[in-house]
């Protein structure tokens, strides 16, 4: 099963280390393979360094792709986290 969705990063500092860490924490809860893509560059969603190297400041568009049995659940959890501005603000 594959799910793809695009999100906008809305929090002020963009996807900084703490936020990225939260994403990784959520992503690693699921069996599915998770990828983040920005401007044609794709990284492993379970790698903190990968996410950081994507460099997503506020306003960037992030494509989330989940591949696997629990893809819908993973997508829902990640989406909720991003939409809530990572509970940061």
């Amino acid at each position: 099963m594959e799910q793809i969705k695009t999100f906008e990063i809305k929090n002020k500092l963009g996807m900084h280390a703490r936020v990225a860490a939260k994403l990784v924490k959520v992503a690693t809860r699921f069996k599915s393979r998770i990828y983040f893509e920005k401007d044609g560059q794709e990284v492993n969603g379970k790698s903190l360094l990968g996410i950081l190297t994507l460099a997503c400041p506020k306003g960037s568009r992030l494509i989330v792709r989940a591949e696997g049995m629990d893809a819908p659940e993973a997508m829902a959890a990640l989406g909720q986290l991003i939409e809530s501005k990572f509970d940061e603000e």
């Binding site: 280390a17 860490a21 990784v24 790698s47 903190l48 360094l49």
Partner: peptide
């Protein structure tokens, strides 16, 4: 604590 979490994640990062 967050900083430590981040550092642990970096340490365990597969790519790294």
């Amino acid at each position: 604590l967050y900083i430590i979490d981040v550092q642990i994640m970096i340490l365990k990062d597969r790519r790294l």
